[in-house]
Structure formats: C-alpha cells, structure tokens
C-alpha cells in the first residue's frame, strides 16, 4: 500500500513497524519468561503430565470443530441473505441479531443451564457447542455481510442471466469469493470456542469431557497460585491457535490474490 522506493525510506518503514511492535511483544516476553521461571522446562513437563491433558485437548478440538462448522454454515447463508436479498424488516432482524452480542456470559448461565437440562443436552458437547455458536454467529455475520456487500452485484446478475439460481450463486460465487473473510471468521470462532471456559465448566459434568481451558486450574488453589505453571499452560493452550492463524493467514492471503474480484 505504502509505496516507498528509496532504500533509507524502506529501512525507515521497517524500523517504524519494529518500534510499533515492541509494546505488543513485551508482555509476551514476560509471559514466556514467567513460564520458564522457577523450575524452567519442568513447568511444561508438569503441565503435560496432568493426567487428563490429552482428554482435554480432544474435547476442545471436538467442541471447536463443531462450533466452527456450525458457525460457518449458518453465517454464510445468513450473511448472503442479509447482503443480497430483499427482506422486509431486514434491519430489525439484523439489530436483533447484533443485540445477541451484548448479554454477558454470566447472565446466560442460568437460563442456558435450565434449557440444556430440560432438552437433555446437559453434559453433552451440544450443550456447549450450540450456545457458543449462537454467540459467535452475530459477529461472523456482521463481518461476512460487509464483505459480501463488497462483491459487485454484477457478478450475481451475470450468473442469473445465465439462468443460475440463487443457490448456485451461493455455491459458485459466495463460497469461493468469501474465502478470505471466512478464514478470519474461522480464526475468531476458533478463538471463541477454544478459549471459552465458563460454558464447559458449567455444562459438562463428565471429567472426560472437560476442556483445555481448565488446565490452569490445576495450579491455582484457594491459598496457592503457581504462576509459572499457569503461564506454561497458557503457552501450550495458545499454541494451536497461533498455528491455526499462521496456516490460515496464508490461506486468506492466497484467497485474496486469487483475485476473482479484481
């Protein structure tokens, strides 16, 4: 975007980015340092030897995957609908959807608990997947709708002249064209699902279904708090998300350069 041709200018640019990034880096350094303080790598060994850690990982993966699939499918439909169709009272629906973002989790617990018990979903993964997806959808729709707004109508019109239905427009235009933003949605949904703590804690009773976010609680007691191992668990918990970001970041850049829009 910025076009700097001269060498000193480019060095200056590089320097500027570096300087701006340092404040973001410092707390991360403090975190990693903290995770290695005291017993050093033993902290990681201790975290990894928590009895059920692999169970935790698997539960987190199941829940995240469920949420991501559900959010992706629902979001694509909904955002396409909001962006390219005539719907009476559309703004009202949209605001109703957005308002879902505002309720704090604590307030949701009691009603959700009641519902999950009465529907028999309590202590199943669905009890966590459904509310998490419900919480992620409004944000995802907001993003994707804005993105689809940016896809020229002419493309859809051309498709329609060719006799294609809305459905095939959806499959052949929306799905491939939204890949970049879908990658972003995927990441944020993953973060929301992977990092959630309260819902699995409350809605999953079976110890085998507990998630990775409960890991630090093995090192925090009423009168104790092993900061070093808590930070080590944090590093381990964050790793899959960072890796996912790294992979997807390539995808959404590729998605962009594929450039059907340009």
């Amino acid at each position: 975007m910025f076009e700097v041709r001269s060498l000193p200018g480019r060095i200056g640019l590089q320097l500027l980015v570096t300087l701006l990034t340092i404040p973001f880096l410092l707390p991360l350094v403090a975190m990693v340092q903290g995770s290695l303080a005291g017993a050093g790598f033993e902290n990681y060994v201790a975290v990894l030897s928590v009895g059920r850690i692999w169970n935790f990982f698997i539960s987190s993966i199941i829940i995240s995957a469920g949420v991501i699939i559900l959010v992706y499918v629902v979001t694509m439909f909904t955002a396409f609908g909001f962006s390219k169709f005539r719907i009476p009272g559309k703004e009202v629906y949209f605001w109703l959807l957005l308002a879902c973002l505002t309720l704090p989790e604590v307030v949701l617990l009691a009603p959700l608990f009641a519902t999950s018990v009465s529907t028999g979903l309590y202590d199943t993964y669905w009890a966590v997947i459904l509310p998490l997806a419900a919480l992620q959808v409004p944000f995802a729709v907001l993003l994707v709708r804005n993105f689809i707004n940016g896809i020229p109508d002419e493309l859809f019109e051309a498709a329609r002249v060719d006799g294609a239905s809305s459905w095939s427009g959806f499959i052949h235009l929306v799905i491939p064209l939204t890949r970049p933003i879908a990658a972003a949605v995927l990441i944020f949904t993953l973060i929301g699902a992977w990092n959630n703590y309260l819902l699995p804690l409350v809605f999953l009773q079976d110890p085998a279904k507990q998630t990775i976010t409960l890991l630090p609680s093995y090192f925090i007691g009423q009168f104790s708090h092993d900061q070093t191992k808590v930070l080590a668990s944090a590093v381990l918990t964050a790793l899959p998300e960072v890796i996912a970001y790294l992979c997807l970041q390539r995808l959404f850049e590729r998605g962009l350069s594929a450039g059907a829009i340009k």
Partner: peptide
C-alpha cells in the same frame, strides 16, 4: 424482482435469536 431472502437468514435467526432471546426474556 429478486426472490425473497428470508429463508437464507433463517438458520442464523433460529440459532442465535432462538437460543439467546430465551435468555434475554428470562433475564
């Protein structure tokens, strides 16, 4: 002339509004 879009947004409405508006009413 475009087709009615309500069916498209229905899944989102059912999921989010369905699950969360129960909570809002309850609150």
């Amino acid at each position: 002339l475009q087709p009615h879009g309500l069916p498209w947004i229905l899944p989102g409405l059912v999921l989010s509004i369905g699950v969360l508006y129960f909570c809002i009413g309850y609150t």
